[in-house]
């Protein structure tokens, strides 16, 4: 008796723990690790963003060679919230490039002061007139600390160039990857054997609590019934230092650390080019599109 699609479909559960401007933490449970891994891989390598890809130098007598600067320009994150409105240059109907598939920047800095000056990402100025949304992420704010340095110029040195940003994915070059961090971890389950813990002296307890490099445990000597507690299980990185300490005290069953292997805790940090929740959403949609293209081909053109 075959199982139906409904019987075979897993019912995953998702919960968002935290959303910030640059990062998101969420859990995914009741599913397979292959789903979590597909999501992670797509967030890193297949979510499209905009990035500088072509640079034409008009003048450069700085200390860095053209290639060096072009590479640095490529790595500057650009605001890509409107990336869906752009075409890939290879798919675009234009002959070489147009406003539908690229954004042009210019940079023109000359140092005439005695003191050397920094050329930064905020010196990049959009030339294309139709779309001003694609700008360096640092240009969104006026804070000078966010600027990304490109090169230093001393008196008499000049940098003049045109840079062309295109749409792309991280598979082609990491500069198009929207995520700085995209990882998942299993949920750690940390349990203290309280009977064994009571056998330790106060000094040993304190020493044992201090053995954890990420400070998972808390020690409050005034709490008579339970002086040692598991305060931050999520910080555990499975180094098992606490286990080693417990063994050194002759109590190997003092602590048990396990992984809950069907609950994935995702941490996604954006480079600034996309909002973290948009990265996740876009990744889910890309996987759906991938599956869909395979499904259509399977239903249509099979022998």
């Amino acid at each position: 008796m075959s199982l139906s699609v409904t019987q075979l479909t897993r019912q995953p559960e998702l919960d968002i723990l935290e959303i910030k401007n640059e990062s998101i933490v969420f859990t995914l449970s009741n599913t397979d690790i292959s789903v979590a891994n597909a999501l992670r891989r797509v967030m890193i390598a297949e979510v499209p963003t905009m990035s500088i890809d072509l640079v034409e130098f008009e003048a450069n007598n700085s200390v860095l060679c053209d290639e060096f600067i072009a590479h640095r320009l490529g790595l500057i994150p650009l605001v890509s919230d409107n990336v869906d409105k752009f075409n890939y240059t290879r798919d675009c109907s234009c002959s070489e490039r147009c406003d539908q598939c690229s954004v042009e920047f210019k940079l023109n800095v000359k140092c005439s002061n005695q003191r050397p000056i920094d050329v930064t990402s905020s010196d990049l100025i959009v030339v294309s007139n139709n779309n001003n949304s694609v700008i360096p992420v640092s240009s969104q704010t006026t804070e000078r600390t966010d600027e990304i340095p490109i090169v230093k110029l001393r008196q008499g040195q000049e940098l003049r160039l045109r840079a062309i940003a295109k749409k792309g994915v991280g598979k082609e070059h990491a500069k198009w990857s929207p995520s700085c961090i995209a990882t998942y971890q299993f949920q750690p389950i940390v349990t203290i054997n309280q009977n064994r813990m009571d056998e330790l002296s106060d000094k040993q307890k304190e020493e044992w609590v201090g053995s954890c490099p990420t400070k998972v445990f808390g020690y409050s000597p005034h709490n008579q019934s339970q002086p040692v507690s598991v305060d931050e299980p999520m910080r555990c990185m499975y180094c098992l230092e606490c286990k080693k300490k417990a063994e050194a005290f002759g109590k190997p069953d003092l602590i048990s650390i396990e992984q809950k292997q069907d609950k994935f805790i995702f941490t996604v940090e954006s480079s600034g080019s996309l909002k973290p929740e948009d990265i996740v959403l876009s990744a889910i949609q890309i996987i759906k599109a991938k599956l869909n293209s395979i499904q259509t081909q399977l239903s249509e053109g099979m022998i």
Partner: peptide
């Protein structure tokens, strides 16, 4: 394989819906 891909599509639809509502 068609059945498996249908299952996966449903699963990702489900994840997408949940994610949108949670956000």
């Amino acid at each position: 394989i068609k059945k498996s891909i249908e299952c996966l599509t449903n699963e990702f639809l489900n994840i997408e819906d949940q994610f949108k509502t949670m956000v």
